[in-house]
Computed example of a mutant assay.
Amino acid sequence: MAVTLKDIAEKVGVTESTVSRVLNGIPKASKETRKEIFQVAADLGYKPNQIARSLVTKKTHTIGLIISDLANTYFARVASGIENIASKYDYSLIISTTGGQEKEELKYINLLKEKQVDGLLFASGRMPFSCKKLLRETEIPTVVVAREVDEDLPSVHINNVKESYRAVKYLINNGHQKIAMISGNADDKESGLYRIQGYKQALNDNKLEVREELIVEGDFKLQSGIKAVEEILKRDSSITAVFAASDEMGVGAIKAIKKAGLKVPNDISVIGFDNNIISLASDPELATISQPEEELGWRSMEMLYKVIKGEELEEKKIYLPCELKKRGSVRKI
């Protein structure tokens, strides 16, 4: 039989309302009484009724996570980091996947508002103006994950310009001068535009020519990496290296290079971005920029917890460092 507030109240010698207030975090009893109530509740194995608790505290102990695609290992690892900290603070996650589509993002922001979530983590798409506007209007405590926004919203992300620069500089340090890029969509500031900027800046700083025809757009998937390299080799078969803005496109690049009768890294070196499991499954293993996906998740949930509690943030925008993984797909020339 389930333990009730009455059982705890009788054991401690206080009223049911006192037990309810203490268990719901309302400090209207002495320190000794609160301690005894929590101890008795634990000893009896009391399990609070979450619905009833929500009516008292006006909190649902739920967090809404709007995320692009859990089938993508990058987002799955971000979500794992979020879930670990949410569980630590006794929050349940309501996960909504959007495919990065604005229509879906707006739908789920409204849905999560109706469900009265205590906070929201946004890790989807390009954060269009419509989403920023709606988030302001809902007044739900929000943290943006892996996306830099101009708005006054707290965020945790990486510096895509800096990390892309690091990848291209590694190729340059290995003697490469004709370096092509498989980019994301330039309309996507974070994974698209900023990574292109990092590529160009590295070339410019090392007095190497930026050739726009050697930048071919992909969609971060393997097949687009194959098609991009096929196009690049038609434009200039003398390139010695490729920087891919995702590991999947990097592995696609390796496949296309081999299909063209060339070898990696003997003829063309390849470096990716993310450090997904696919980077280790390729032959040769793909050199890459390793993103701290799980840390992006847990740091953003820690930040959201502080926002929900009304605590002041030391930093509203946190940049996490990445790591260069040197592997067999790059050689010195």
Rank of each mutant, 00 (worst) to 15 (best):
E294R: 14
D188Q: 12
F38D: 07
S164R: 02
D118G: 04
N72Q: 10
E212V: 11
V78E: 02
V145D: 00
V117Y: 01
F122G: 00
A86H: 00
P128C: 08
V149Q: 01
S282W: 04
L193A: 13
H61E: 12
L324C: 11
V161L: 08
E102P: 09
T33M: 10
M303Q: 08
A2R: 07
V161H: 02
E16D: 13
Y305C: 10
G250T: 09
E148H: 12
G225F: 03
P265F: 05
A42P: 07
A244T: 05
P154W: 02
E104D: 14
S183Y: 06
N173C: 11
G119R: 00
T60M: 07
G198V: 02
L134F: 06
L93R: 05
V22T: 03
R136C: 12
K47F: 08
Q50R: 15
K28N: 14
S124P: 05
H157P: 04
K132C: 10
K259M: 12
I37V: 09
K200E: 14
N206W: 07
V307F: 11
K169F: 06
L233F: 08
E102T: 14
K189M: 13
T98H: 01
V12A: 07
M249P: 05
N84F: 11
S237V: 08
Y319M: 13
I37E: 00
G218Q: 04
F243T: 01
V117D: 00
I82P: 00
G100I: 03
I182R: 01
V144M: 03
A253L: 09
V19T: 03
N204M: 14
V270H: 04
L324W: 10
P292R: 11
I95L: 11
G261I: 08
E302Y: 08
K59H: 11
R21Y: 10
K88Q: 14
V168S: 01
D152E: 15
E151I: 04
A180M: 11
D43M: 12
T73L: 11
S155P: 03
N84Q: 15
L120W: 00
I254E: 02
S238C: 10
E36I: 05
T240S: 15
T15G: 15
N206S: 14
K332A: 08
L262Y: 10
V149I: 13
G198H: 02
K325V: 12
I226N: 03
G310D: 13
D247Q: 12
T18P: 01
G198Y: 01
K258Y: 13
L320T: 08
I254A: 04
I271V: 15
S124W: 01
I85H: 10
E212P: 06
V19D: 00
S282V: 07
E294G: 13
I226K: 08
V3S: 00
K107P: 02
L296A: 07
S124V: 04
I268S: 02
R21K: 15
K47R: 15
Y89Q: 09
L111H: 10
D267P: 05
M303P: 02
R195L: 09
I333F: 14
S282F: 07
V156N: 01
K133P: 04
K59I: 04
T33Q: 07
Q39W: 06
